[in-house]
């Protein structure tokens, strides 16, 4: 039996599509890390809440899928901002700011993760819910070798790339984006520039959580939506962020795509029942040879 290049290509295409979703979750984690110096362990739950919000909007309220996506992003962004403002920011007072709040912040993130999962149980119950989105207006793509890519994958790829491009434009070419970068680098100097630093911190958190929600709504039609889904996504997005270089935004995307492809190839050619291990295998391999990640800098340079 000869090697089937078409199925290899198919695995890669599906891997890239799922990988960009890991990438946008990782992007949020990296954004929060580079902006606020905290590793946000409850980010998987933001993704889960985003998926549920999308589900509720699309099924129960009955609005079209693309608008439900935007609605879920906004709702989750608000949820994230509230969580940050009410819980995380309190810790920074004692610690003297996000930079040194350190360990307490990590524990708080874990606690928030557990709390959010339980809130979700309370609201939506433990059952996995299928997310049926009407995507008939999206064309099915057919690649050479008769590889058919389902609508939801096509949509996912398009929306993910659009979100990344929008984030890039925002950070690089708008004045508010400049302010976000300034806050990320040094909050005291940003204050002296007249930047409303607390507001920018909320904005960073909102953006990151909105991105996670987008990932949740995009994954929804491929898998089903359930309360425990955040944990695995957090792990994979972490792997993606670390592989790409923690804190680096382009690195998060590249890391996400690598994790997605690696995982799909592993499932196809090694063993499908251990699908979730491959992300970490890749993580270990990359860290062995380049500990700072592919695009990471050795250490964050602070003034």
């Amino acid at each position: 039996m000869g090697f089937d290049y078409n199925s290899l290509l198919a695995f890669i295409i599906f891997g890239v599509t799922i990988g960009v979703v890991y990438g946008i979750v990782a992007l949020g984690i990296s954004l929060i890390y580079s902006g606020l110096d905290i590793v946000h362990f409850a980010h998987g739950e933001m993704y889960m809440f985003g998926a549920f919000f999308g589900l509720v909007l699309a099924h129960n309220v009955g609005i079209p899928y693309p608008i439900a996506l935007i609605g879920a992003m906004i709702m989750t962004a608000i949820l994230g901002m509230v969580v940050e403002r009410v819980f995380y920011r309190r810790l920074t007072r004692a610690g003297g700011g996000y930079t040194v709040a350190g360990m307490g912040m990590i524990i708080c993130g874990f606690g928030m993760s557990v709390a959010l999962v339980n809130v979700a149980y309370f609201i939506w119950g433990a059952e996995a819910e299928p997310f049926r989105a009407n995507l008939d207006y999206i064309p099915r793509l057919t690649f050479p070798g008769d590889i058919k890519v389902p609508e939801s994958y096509v949509l996912t790829a398009i929306i993910s790339v659009a979100l990344m491009a929008a984030l890039h434009y925002f950070l690089r070419h708008t004045k508010t984006g400049l302010a976000v970068r300034a806050v990320a680098h040094n909050k005291d100097i940003a204050y002296l520039m007249g930047i409303n630093v607390p507001l920018m911190i909320s904005l960073i958190f909102g953006l990151a959580c909105g991105l996670a929600a987008a990932a949740g709504v995009l994954i929804g039609p491929m898998q089903s939506v359930q309360v425990e889904m955040g944990y695995l996504m957090l792990m994979k997005a972490f792997a993606a962020a670390v592989v790409g270089g923690f804190g680096s935004l382009p690195g998060a995307i590249i890391g996400g795509i690598m994790v997605g492809v690696f995982e799909n190839l592993g499932a196809a050619y090694i063993s499908p029942s251990h699908k979730d291990i491959y992300a970490f295998l890749l993580l270990i391999l990359v860290l062995m040879f380049k500990p700072s990640g592919l695009l990471g800098v050795e250490a964050k340079v602070k003034a």
């Binding site: 400049l178 970068r181 300034a182 680098h185 040094n186 100097i189 002296l192 340079v301 003034a303």
Partner: peptide, 11 residues
């Protein structure tokens, strides 16, 4: 005006 070392080096 901040100290000189506090320009944003990556901008």
């Amino acid at each position: 005006v901040t100290q000189a070392k506090e320009a944003y080096p990556a901008m």
